[in-house]
Nucleic acid binder design. Structure first.
Lengths: 252, 252
DNA sequence: CCGTGTGAACTGATTCACAGCC
DNA sequence: GGCTGTGAATCAGTTCACACGG
Protein backbone atom coordinates (compact mmCIF):
# COMPACT_ATOMS: atom_id res chain seq x y z
CA UNK A 1 0.00 0.00 0.00
CA UNK A 2 1.16 3.50 -0.75
CA UNK A 3 -0.43 6.87 -0.40
CA UNK A 4 -3.76 6.72 1.30
CA UNK A 5 -6.22 9.53 1.15
CA UNK A 6 -7.40 10.82 4.45
CA UNK A 7 -11.01 10.69 5.26
CA UNK A 8 -12.84 12.73 7.82
CA UNK A 9 -14.31 10.68 10.60
CA UNK A 10 -16.41 11.72 13.49
CA UNK A 11 -18.08 10.40 16.56
CA UNK A 12 -20.87 12.60 15.41
CA UNK A 13 -22.87 12.34 12.26
CA UNK A 14 -21.16 11.81 8.96
CA UNK A 15 -22.39 13.84 6.03
CA UNK A 16 -24.00 12.36 2.99
CA UNK A 17 -24.33 13.90 -0.46
CA UNK A 18 -27.84 12.70 -1.35
CA UNK A 19 -27.66 12.39 -5.10
CA UNK A 20 -30.63 10.16 -5.92
CA UNK A 21 -32.60 11.99 -8.60
CA UNK A 22 -36.24 11.18 -7.72
CA UNK A 23 -37.86 7.91 -8.61
CA UNK A 24 -41.16 6.22 -7.95
CA UNK A 25 -40.01 4.27 -4.93
CA UNK A 26 -42.19 3.91 -1.82
CA UNK A 27 -40.01 6.58 -0.31
CA UNK A 28 -37.06 8.47 -1.65
CA UNK A 29 -33.59 7.22 -0.82
CA UNK A 30 -31.61 9.84 1.00
CA UNK A 31 -32.18 9.61 4.71
CA UNK A 32 -30.33 12.47 6.42
CA UNK A 33 -27.34 11.33 8.38
CA UNK A 34 -28.66 12.93 11.55
CA UNK A 35 -31.76 10.81 11.19
CA UNK A 36 -29.78 7.62 10.63
CA UNK A 37 -27.90 8.29 13.86
CA UNK A 38 -31.17 8.45 15.78
CA UNK A 39 -32.91 5.45 14.28
CA UNK A 40 -31.05 3.02 16.56
CA UNK A 41 -32.26 5.00 19.55
CA UNK A 42 -35.85 4.83 18.39
CA UNK A 43 -35.42 1.14 17.70
CA UNK A 44 -34.23 0.47 21.21
CA UNK A 45 -37.06 2.49 22.71
CA UNK A 46 -39.57 0.62 20.58
CA UNK A 47 -38.14 -2.75 21.60
CA UNK A 48 -38.54 -1.71 25.21
CA UNK A 49 -42.17 -0.81 24.59
CA UNK A 50 -42.78 -4.06 22.74
CA UNK A 51 -41.40 -6.04 25.67
CA UNK A 52 -43.84 -4.29 27.93
CA UNK A 53 -46.64 -5.42 25.66
CA UNK A 54 -47.38 -1.98 24.23
CA UNK A 55 -48.86 -2.23 20.75
CA UNK A 56 -49.22 1.36 19.67
CA UNK A 57 -47.35 4.53 20.51
CA UNK A 58 -47.75 8.22 19.71
CA UNK A 59 -44.89 10.35 18.43
CA UNK A 60 -45.06 12.23 21.71
CA UNK A 61 -44.53 9.14 23.86
CA UNK A 62 -41.94 7.53 21.66
CA UNK A 63 -40.04 10.78 21.45
CA UNK A 64 -39.98 11.09 25.17
CA UNK A 65 -38.75 7.51 25.59
CA UNK A 66 -36.00 8.24 23.10
CA UNK A 67 -35.06 11.60 24.56
CA UNK A 68 -35.91 13.78 21.55
CA UNK A 69 -38.82 16.07 20.79
CA UNK A 70 -41.81 14.81 18.91
CA UNK A 71 -41.48 17.05 15.87
CA UNK A 72 -38.03 15.70 15.24
CA UNK A 73 -39.18 12.16 15.70
CA UNK A 74 -42.03 12.58 13.25
CA UNK A 75 -39.78 14.22 10.68
CA UNK A 76 -37.26 11.42 11.09
CA UNK A 77 -39.86 8.70 10.63
CA UNK A 78 -41.35 10.51 7.68
CA UNK A 79 -38.09 9.87 5.85
CA UNK A 80 -38.77 6.14 6.00
CA UNK A 81 -42.33 6.38 4.82
CA UNK A 82 -45.82 6.95 6.20
CA UNK A 83 -45.92 4.26 8.79
CA UNK A 84 -48.16 5.97 11.32
CA UNK A 85 -51.92 6.34 11.55
CA UNK A 86 -53.29 9.84 12.03
CA UNK A 87 -55.22 10.23 15.20
CA UNK A 88 -53.72 7.00 16.55
CA UNK A 89 -49.94 6.72 16.40
CA UNK A 90 -47.50 4.07 15.28
CA UNK A 91 -47.81 0.30 15.46
CA UNK A 92 -44.87 -0.73 17.61
CA UNK A 93 -44.02 -4.04 15.94
CA UNK A 94 -44.43 -2.70 12.46
CA UNK A 95 -42.18 0.25 13.20
CA UNK A 96 -39.57 -2.03 14.77
CA UNK A 97 -39.56 -4.00 11.56
CA UNK A 98 -39.36 -0.98 9.28
CA UNK A 99 -36.52 0.62 11.18
CA UNK A 100 -34.64 -2.68 11.40
CA UNK A 101 -34.97 -3.14 7.70
CA UNK A 102 -33.85 0.38 6.97
CA UNK A 103 -30.79 -0.04 9.17
CA UNK A 104 -29.94 -3.33 7.51
CA UNK A 105 -30.55 -5.41 10.61
CA UNK A 106 -32.73 -7.93 8.89
CA UNK A 107 -29.55 -9.49 7.64
CA UNK A 108 -26.63 -10.57 9.77
CA UNK A 109 -23.34 -8.74 9.77
CA UNK A 110 -20.10 -10.47 10.69
CA UNK A 111 -17.85 -8.49 12.94
CA UNK A 112 -14.20 -9.10 13.74
CA UNK A 113 -12.73 -7.55 16.86
CA UNK A 114 -8.99 -7.00 17.02
CA UNK A 115 -7.57 -6.53 20.48
CA UNK A 116 -8.46 -8.89 23.32
CA UNK A 117 -7.54 -6.60 26.18
CA UNK A 118 -10.14 -5.39 28.61
CA UNK A 119 -11.85 -3.34 25.97
CA UNK A 120 -11.97 -6.12 23.39
CA UNK A 121 -13.31 -8.47 26.03
CA UNK A 122 -15.90 -5.98 27.13
CA UNK A 123 -17.03 -5.65 23.53
CA UNK A 124 -17.13 -9.40 23.01
CA UNK A 125 -19.19 -9.82 26.14
CA UNK A 126 -21.58 -7.05 25.21
CA UNK A 127 -24.84 -8.97 25.54
CA UNK A 128 -26.16 -10.45 22.31
CA UNK A 129 -23.94 -7.86 20.73
CA UNK A 130 -26.30 -5.02 21.21
CA UNK A 131 -29.34 -5.87 19.29
CA UNK A 132 -29.53 -8.83 17.01
CA UNK A 133 -28.06 -8.38 13.57
CA UNK A 134 -24.41 -8.73 14.48
CA UNK A 135 -22.30 -11.82 14.88
CA UNK A 136 -18.78 -11.84 16.27
CA UNK A 137 -16.84 -13.87 13.77
CA UNK A 138 -13.54 -13.54 15.57
CA UNK A 139 -11.65 -11.94 18.40
CA UNK A 140 -7.98 -11.54 17.54
CA UNK A 141 -4.88 -10.40 19.35
CA UNK A 142 -1.17 -10.10 18.68
CA UNK A 143 -0.16 -11.23 22.16
CA UNK A 144 0.67 -14.95 22.22
CA UNK A 145 -0.18 -14.90 25.89
CA UNK A 146 -3.86 -14.31 25.30
CA UNK A 147 -4.28 -16.21 22.03
CA UNK A 148 -6.31 -19.28 22.83
CA UNK A 149 -8.12 -17.72 25.79
CA UNK A 150 -11.82 -18.22 25.79
CA UNK A 151 -13.91 -15.04 25.91
CA UNK A 152 -17.68 -14.99 25.62
CA UNK A 153 -17.63 -18.45 24.07
CA UNK A 154 -15.00 -17.48 21.53
CA UNK A 155 -11.40 -18.51 21.19
CA UNK A 156 -9.03 -15.60 20.87
CA UNK A 157 -7.29 -16.04 17.53
CA UNK A 158 -3.94 -14.77 16.37
CA UNK A 159 -3.83 -11.50 14.50
CA UNK A 160 -2.10 -13.21 11.61
CA UNK A 161 -5.31 -15.01 10.81
CA UNK A 162 -7.07 -11.69 10.17
CA UNK A 163 -7.07 -11.97 6.40
CA UNK A 164 -8.30 -15.57 6.53
CA UNK A 165 -11.06 -14.76 8.96
CA UNK A 166 -12.22 -11.77 6.97
CA UNK A 167 -12.54 -13.76 3.79
CA UNK A 168 -13.85 -17.06 5.14
CA UNK A 169 -16.30 -15.44 7.55
CA UNK A 170 -17.30 -12.65 5.17
CA UNK A 171 -16.52 -10.03 7.78
CA UNK A 172 -17.94 -6.67 6.85
CA UNK A 173 -17.28 -4.71 10.00
CA UNK A 174 -13.90 -4.49 11.69
CA UNK A 175 -13.59 -3.30 15.27
CA UNK A 176 -10.26 -1.91 16.40
CA UNK A 177 -9.61 -2.22 20.13
CA UNK A 178 -5.83 -2.10 20.17
CA UNK A 179 -3.41 0.50 21.50
CA UNK A 180 -3.07 3.68 19.48
CA UNK A 181 0.26 2.77 17.91
CA UNK A 182 -1.11 -0.45 16.45
CA UNK A 183 -4.40 0.93 15.18
CA UNK A 184 -3.39 2.17 11.74
CA UNK A 185 -1.66 -1.12 10.97
CA UNK A 186 -4.71 -3.15 11.91
CA UNK A 187 -6.89 -0.79 9.94
CA UNK A 188 -4.72 -1.18 6.86
CA UNK A 189 -4.99 -4.94 7.11
CA UNK A 190 -8.75 -4.76 7.40
CA UNK A 191 -8.99 -2.48 4.41
CA UNK A 192 -6.58 -4.57 2.38
CA UNK A 193 -8.68 -7.63 3.19
CA UNK A 194 -11.78 -5.89 1.88
CA UNK A 195 -13.50 -4.61 5.01
CA UNK A 196 -15.26 -1.32 4.27
CA UNK A 197 -16.70 -0.48 7.68
CA UNK A 198 -14.49 0.15 10.68
CA UNK A 199 -15.29 1.02 14.24
CA UNK A 200 -12.24 2.51 15.90
CA UNK A 201 -11.72 2.70 19.66
CA UNK A 202 -8.10 3.76 19.46
CA UNK A 203 -7.37 7.44 19.96
CA UNK A 204 -5.96 8.10 16.53
CA UNK A 205 -7.25 9.49 13.25
CA UNK A 206 -7.22 6.60 10.81
CA UNK A 207 -6.30 7.09 7.19
CA UNK A 208 -8.48 5.10 4.85
CA UNK A 209 -9.57 5.22 1.21
CA UNK A 210 -12.76 7.18 0.61
CA UNK A 211 -14.86 4.07 0.10
CA UNK A 212 -14.24 2.95 3.65
CA UNK A 213 -16.53 4.10 6.40
CA UNK A 214 -14.88 4.80 9.74
CA UNK A 215 -16.62 5.66 12.97
CA UNK A 216 -14.74 6.34 16.12
CA UNK A 217 -15.46 6.10 19.79
CA UNK A 218 -13.08 8.06 21.91
CA UNK A 219 -13.18 8.20 25.67
CA UNK A 220 -10.84 11.09 26.13
CA UNK A 221 -12.64 13.27 23.64
CA UNK A 222 -15.88 12.71 25.51
CA UNK A 223 -14.24 13.55 28.81
CA UNK A 224 -12.73 16.69 27.38
CA UNK A 225 -16.07 17.86 26.06
CA UNK A 226 -17.58 17.28 29.48
CA UNK A 227 -14.71 19.17 31.07
CA UNK A 228 -15.36 22.12 28.79
CA UNK A 229 -18.97 22.34 29.91
CA UNK A 230 -18.08 21.67 33.53
CA UNK A 231 -15.67 24.57 33.37
CA UNK A 232 -18.33 26.85 31.97
CA UNK A 233 -20.64 25.95 34.81
CA UNK A 234 -17.88 26.48 37.38
CA UNK A 235 -16.92 29.82 35.84
CA UNK A 236 -20.33 31.09 36.72
CA UNK A 237 -20.83 31.98 33.10
CA UNK A 238 -24.26 31.77 31.61
CA UNK A 239 -24.97 28.32 33.03
CA UNK A 240 -26.89 27.65 29.84
CA UNK A 241 -28.60 24.27 29.80
CA UNK A 242 -25.88 22.07 28.41
CA UNK A 243 -28.14 19.59 26.69
CA UNK A 244 -30.85 20.08 24.14
CA UNK A 245 -34.42 21.02 24.67
CA UNK A 246 -36.15 19.48 27.63
CA UNK A 247 -38.15 17.18 25.52
CA UNK A 248 -40.45 15.38 27.94
CA UNK A 249 -43.63 15.77 29.83
CA UNK A 250 -42.36 13.82 32.74
CA UNK A 251 -42.01 10.20 31.85
CA UNK A 252 -41.74 7.58 34.56
CA UNK B 1 -36.79 10.76 43.80
CA UNK B 2 -39.85 11.89 41.97
CA UNK B 3 -40.45 13.24 38.55
CA UNK B 4 -37.34 13.94 36.62
CA UNK B 5 -37.26 15.95 33.46
CA UNK B 6 -35.84 14.23 30.47
CA UNK B 7 -32.95 15.76 28.72
CA UNK B 8 -31.81 15.11 25.21
CA UNK B 9 -28.42 13.49 25.02
CA UNK B 10 -26.41 12.50 22.06
CA UNK B 11 -23.23 10.82 21.06
CA UNK B 12 -23.01 13.67 18.65
CA UNK B 13 -22.80 17.32 19.45
CA UNK B 14 -25.01 18.86 22.06
CA UNK B 15 -26.59 22.16 21.19
CA UNK B 16 -25.81 25.34 22.98
CA UNK B 17 -27.96 28.45 23.20
CA UNK B 18 -25.20 31.06 23.06
CA UNK B 19 -26.71 33.86 25.05
CA UNK B 20 -23.69 35.96 25.93
CA UNK B 21 -24.60 39.51 24.92
CA UNK B 22 -21.28 40.89 23.65
CA UNK B 23 -18.58 42.14 25.94
CA UNK B 24 -15.06 43.45 25.56
CA UNK B 25 -13.33 40.17 26.22
CA UNK B 26 -10.29 39.01 24.22
CA UNK B 27 -12.72 36.79 22.39
CA UNK B 28 -16.44 36.30 22.68
CA UNK B 29 -17.71 33.42 24.79
CA UNK B 30 -19.89 31.14 22.78
CA UNK B 31 -17.82 28.52 21.06
CA UNK B 32 -20.05 26.46 18.78
CA UNK B 33 -20.63 22.97 20.06
CA UNK B 34 -19.33 21.45 16.84
CA UNK B 35 -16.08 23.29 17.42
CA UNK B 36 -15.81 22.14 21.03
CA UNK B 37 -16.18 18.56 19.84
CA UNK B 38 -13.21 18.98 17.51
CA UNK B 39 -10.85 20.80 19.85
CA UNK B 40 -9.77 17.57 21.55
CA UNK B 41 -8.85 16.16 18.15
CA UNK B 42 -6.76 19.20 17.33
CA UNK B 43 -5.17 19.00 20.72
CA UNK B 44 -4.15 15.42 20.20
CA UNK B 45 -2.76 16.17 16.76
CA UNK B 46 -0.78 19.09 18.17
CA UNK B 47 0.64 16.99 20.97
CA UNK B 48 1.79 14.49 18.38
CA UNK B 49 3.53 17.26 16.45
CA UNK B 50 5.10 18.63 19.61
CA UNK B 51 6.52 15.22 20.44
CA UNK B 52 8.11 15.10 17.03
CA UNK B 53 9.76 18.42 17.78
CA UNK B 54 7.67 20.47 15.36
CA UNK B 55 7.41 24.08 16.49
CA UNK B 56 5.10 25.63 13.96
CA UNK B 57 2.28 24.27 11.85
CA UNK B 58 0.03 25.65 9.10
CA UNK B 59 -3.73 25.24 9.15
CA UNK B 60 -3.37 23.01 6.13
CA UNK B 61 -1.02 20.58 7.85
CA UNK B 62 -2.77 20.56 11.18
CA UNK B 63 -6.10 20.06 9.48
CA UNK B 64 -4.79 17.10 7.61
CA UNK B 65 -3.35 15.56 10.78
CA UNK B 66 -6.72 16.01 12.43
CA UNK B 67 -8.76 14.74 9.50
CA UNK B 68 -10.69 17.93 8.75
CA UNK B 69 -10.34 20.58 6.07
CA UNK B 70 -8.30 23.65 6.66
CA UNK B 71 -11.11 26.18 6.36
CA UNK B 72 -12.97 24.44 9.14
CA UNK B 73 -9.88 24.31 11.28
CA UNK B 74 -9.17 28.00 10.85
CA UNK B 75 -12.75 28.91 11.61
CA UNK B 76 -12.68 26.72 14.70
CA UNK B 77 -9.47 28.25 15.99
CA UNK B 78 -10.73 31.73 15.25
CA UNK B 79 -13.38 31.15 17.90
CA UNK B 80 -10.64 30.92 20.52
CA UNK B 81 -8.82 34.01 19.38
CA UNK B 82 -6.20 35.06 16.88
CA UNK B 83 -3.44 32.71 17.83
CA UNK B 84 -1.82 32.26 14.43
CA UNK B 85 0.65 34.34 12.50
CA UNK B 86 -0.26 35.27 8.95
CA UNK B 87 2.16 33.93 6.43
CA UNK B 88 3.58 31.52 9.01
CA UNK B 89 1.08 29.37 10.86
CA UNK B 90 0.48 28.45 14.48
CA UNK B 91 3.00 27.99 17.25
CA UNK B 92 2.46 24.40 18.34
CA UNK B 93 3.12 24.79 22.06
CA UNK B 94 1.16 27.97 22.36
CA UNK B 95 -1.82 26.46 20.63
CA UNK B 96 -1.64 23.35 22.82
CA UNK B 97 -1.82 25.64 25.81
CA UNK B 98 -4.68 27.74 24.48
CA UNK B 99 -6.81 24.76 23.56
CA UNK B 100 -6.07 23.04 26.86
CA UNK B 101 -7.11 26.11 28.72
CA UNK B 102 -10.26 26.49 26.71
CA UNK B 103 -11.21 22.88 27.35
CA UNK B 104 -10.56 23.26 31.05
CA UNK B 105 -7.62 20.88 31.08
CA UNK B 106 -5.32 23.22 32.95
CA UNK B 107 -7.12 22.14 36.06
CA UNK B 108 -7.63 18.56 37.20
CA UNK B 109 -11.00 16.87 37.11
CA UNK B 110 -11.85 14.01 39.41
CA UNK B 111 -13.65 11.14 37.78
CA UNK B 112 -15.49 8.27 39.43
CA UNK B 113 -16.13 5.12 37.43
CA UNK B 114 -18.97 2.86 38.47
CA UNK B 115 -18.81 -0.69 37.18
CA UNK B 116 -15.62 -2.72 37.41
CA UNK B 117 -16.41 -5.24 34.72
CA UNK B 118 -14.32 -5.48 31.60
CA UNK B 119 -15.46 -2.09 30.44
CA UNK B 120 -14.81 -0.34 33.73
CA UNK B 121 -11.38 -1.96 33.88
CA UNK B 122 -10.63 -0.98 30.33
CA UNK B 123 -11.52 2.60 31.18
CA UNK B 124 -9.46 2.58 34.37
CA UNK B 125 -6.48 1.24 32.47
CA UNK B 126 -6.84 3.75 29.68
CA UNK B 127 -3.30 5.14 29.70
CA UNK B 128 -2.87 8.29 31.76
CA UNK B 129 -6.60 8.60 31.31
CA UNK B 130 -6.43 9.99 27.86
CA UNK B 131 -4.61 13.21 28.13
CA UNK B 132 -3.69 14.71 31.43
CA UNK B 133 -6.35 16.67 33.20
CA UNK B 134 -8.33 13.74 34.60
CA UNK B 135 -7.79 11.75 37.74
CA UNK B 136 -9.64 8.57 38.59
CA UNK B 137 -10.83 9.16 42.12
CA UNK B 138 -12.57 5.82 42.43
CA UNK B 139 -13.65 2.66 40.68
CA UNK B 140 -16.78 1.23 42.28
CA UNK B 141 -18.86 -1.89 41.85
CA UNK B 142 -21.88 -3.50 43.45
CA UNK B 143 -20.48 -7.02 43.21
CA UNK B 144 -18.83 -8.04 46.49
CA UNK B 145 -16.76 -10.48 44.47
CA UNK B 146 -14.80 -7.74 42.76
CA UNK B 147 -14.75 -5.15 45.54
CA UNK B 148 -11.19 -4.98 46.79
CA UNK B 149 -9.63 -6.08 43.50
CA UNK B 150 -6.76 -3.96 42.36
CA UNK B 151 -7.15 -2.41 38.92
CA UNK B 152 -4.70 0.06 37.46
CA UNK B 153 -3.34 0.80 40.89
CA UNK B 154 -6.76 1.41 42.34
CA UNK B 155 -8.80 -0.59 44.81
CA UNK B 156 -12.29 -1.34 43.62
CA UNK B 157 -14.62 0.23 46.15
CA UNK B 158 -18.17 -0.64 47.03
CA UNK B 159 -20.95 1.22 45.29
CA UNK B 160 -22.34 2.28 48.65
CA UNK B 161 -19.37 4.56 49.09
CA UNK B 162 -20.39 6.56 46.01
CA UNK B 163 -21.78 9.52 47.91
CA UNK B 164 -18.75 9.65 50.19
CA UNK B 165 -16.31 9.46 47.35
CA UNK B 166 -18.09 12.13 45.36
CA UNK B 167 -18.01 14.57 48.21
CA UNK B 168 -14.59 13.83 49.70
CA UNK B 169 -12.87 13.58 46.33
CA UNK B 170 -14.78 16.44 44.74
CA UNK B 171 -15.81 14.26 41.83
CA UNK B 172 -17.19 16.29 38.99
CA UNK B 173 -17.49 13.65 36.29
CA UNK B 174 -19.25 10.35 36.78
CA UNK B 175 -18.69 7.45 34.39
CA UNK B 176 -21.35 4.78 34.17
CA UNK B 177 -20.06 1.39 33.04
CA UNK B 178 -22.74 -0.86 34.50
CA UNK B 179 -25.41 -3.00 32.83
CA UNK B 180 -28.37 -1.16 31.32
CA UNK B 181 -30.79 -1.99 34.11
CA UNK B 182 -28.55 -0.47 36.77
CA UNK B 183 -27.61 2.66 34.87
CA UNK B 184 -30.45 4.98 35.80
CA UNK B 185 -30.04 4.13 39.48
CA UNK B 186 -26.34 4.92 39.41
CA UNK B 187 -27.03 8.09 37.50
CA UNK B 188 -29.58 9.21 40.07
CA UNK B 189 -27.08 8.66 42.84
CA UNK B 190 -24.46 10.68 41.01
CA UNK B 191 -26.88 13.51 40.42
CA UNK B 192 -28.14 13.41 43.98
CA UNK B 193 -24.56 13.59 45.19
CA UNK B 194 -23.98 16.69 43.10
CA UNK B 195 -22.25 15.39 39.98
CA UNK B 196 -23.27 17.46 36.96
CA UNK B 197 -21.34 15.72 34.19
CA UNK B 198 -22.00 12.12 33.31
CA UNK B 199 -20.48 9.86 30.70
CA UNK B 200 -22.78 6.93 30.05
CA UNK B 201 -21.70 3.67 28.44
CA UNK B 202 -24.92 1.82 29.20
CA UNK B 203 -27.38 1.49 26.33
CA UNK B 204 -30.19 3.48 27.90
CA UNK B 205 -31.46 7.04 27.70
CA UNK B 206 -30.79 8.59 31.09
CA UNK B 207 -33.23 10.96 32.69
CA UNK B 208 -31.51 13.85 34.39
CA UNK B 209 -32.35 17.39 35.44
CA UNK B 210 -31.53 20.03 32.82
CA UNK B 211 -28.46 21.27 34.68
CA UNK B 212 -26.76 17.92 34.25
CA UNK B 213 -24.70 17.23 31.18
CA UNK B 214 -24.87 13.70 29.84
CA UNK B 215 -22.85 12.27 27.01
CA UNK B 216 -23.23 8.74 25.87
CA UNK B 217 -21.08 6.21 24.14
CA UNK B 218 -23.01 3.40 22.62
CA UNK B 219 -21.47 0.50 20.78
CA UNK B 220 -24.60 -0.88 19.26
CA UNK B 221 -25.67 2.47 17.88
CA UNK B 222 -22.31 2.83 16.16
CA UNK B 223 -22.58 -0.66 14.72
CA UNK B 224 -26.07 0.01 13.46
CA UNK B 225 -24.99 3.18 11.74
CA UNK B 226 -22.18 1.27 10.07
CA UNK B 227 -24.64 -1.43 9.06
CA UNK B 228 -26.86 1.16 7.43
CA UNK B 229 -24.03 2.42 5.27
CA UNK B 230 -22.74 -1.07 4.59
CA UNK B 231 -26.19 -1.99 3.31
CA UNK B 232 -26.27 1.01 1.04
CA UNK B 233 -22.96 -0.02 -0.45
CA UNK B 234 -24.12 -3.61 -0.86
CA UNK B 235 -27.37 -2.52 -2.50
CA UNK B 236 -25.39 -1.05 -5.33
CA UNK B 237 -27.06 2.26 -4.64
CA UNK B 238 -25.17 5.44 -5.25
CA UNK B 239 -22.03 4.31 -3.41
CA UNK B 240 -21.67 7.88 -2.22
CA UNK B 241 -18.55 8.51 -0.18
CA UNK B 242 -19.69 7.67 3.33
CA UNK B 243 -17.47 10.09 5.16
CA UNK B 244 -16.93 13.78 4.74
CA UNK B 245 -14.82 15.57 2.29
CA UNK B 246 -11.47 14.04 1.48
CA UNK B 247 -9.55 16.62 3.30
CA UNK B 248 -5.93 15.76 2.69
CA UNK B 249 -3.17 16.22 0.25
CA UNK B 250 -1.71 12.84 1.01
CA UNK B 251 -0.11 12.84 4.40
CA UNK B 252 2.29 10.07 5.34
C1' DC C 1 4.00 36.42 -1.15
C1' DC C 2 1.95 33.21 2.01
C1' DG C 3 -1.30 31.74 5.20
C1' DT C 4 -4.51 33.50 8.73
C1' DG C 5 -8.89 35.35 9.84
C1' DT C 6 -13.49 36.29 8.42
C1' DG C 7 -17.71 38.12 5.93
C1' DA C 8 -20.83 36.05 2.76
C1' DA C 9 -23.00 32.15 0.58
C1' DC C 10 -24.60 27.84 1.13
C1' DT C 11 -26.03 23.39 2.96
C1' DG C 12 -28.06 20.66 6.37
C1' DA C 13 -30.79 20.10 10.56
C1' DT C 14 -34.33 21.55 13.73
C1' DT C 15 -38.51 23.62 15.01
C1' DC C 16 -42.98 25.59 14.07
C1' DA C 17 -47.55 25.34 12.95
C1' DC C 18 -51.21 23.50 10.64
C1' DA C 19 -53.60 20.90 6.75
C1' DG C 20 -55.19 16.38 6.14
C1' DC C 21 -56.76 11.99 7.56
C1' DC C 22 -58.41 8.32 10.63
C1' DG D 1 -60.82 15.07 18.36
C1' DG D 2 -56.36 13.71 18.06
C1' DC D 3 -52.20 12.78 15.92
C1' DT D 4 -49.50 12.25 11.78
C1' DG D 5 -47.00 14.20 7.99
C1' DT D 6 -44.98 18.14 5.97
C1' DG D 7 -44.19 22.79 3.89
C1' DA D 8 -42.19 27.03 5.59
C1' DA D 9 -39.25 29.49 8.82
C1' DT D 10 -35.36 29.33 11.55
C1' DC D 11 -31.03 28.12 13.18
C1' DA D 12 -26.43 25.93 13.14
C1' DG D 13 -22.54 24.44 10.73
C1' DT D 14 -19.63 24.29 6.61
C1' DT D 15 -17.36 26.03 2.70
C1' DC D 16 -15.86 29.74 -0.27
C1' DA D 17 -12.95 33.29 -1.45
C1' DC D 18 -10.36 37.04 -0.44
C1' DA D 19 -8.75 41.18 2.32
C1' DC D 20 -5.20 41.83 5.52
C1' DG D 21 -0.88 41.54 8.04
C1' DG D 22 3.67 39.53 8.97
Amino acid sequence: MTVRPLQAQTTAAQERPTVTPRSTRPRERGIPEATVARLPVYLRALQGLAERGILTVSSEDLASAAGVNSAKLRKDLSHLGSYGTRGVGYDVDYLVYQISRELGLTQDWSVAIVGAGNLGRALANYGGFGTRGFRIAALLDADEGVVGDEVAGLHVGHIDTLEDVVSTERVSIGVIAVPAVAAQGVCDRFVEAGVTSVLNFAPVVLNVPPAVDVRKVDLSIELQILAFHAQRKADGRAPAPPGGRIGAKEKA
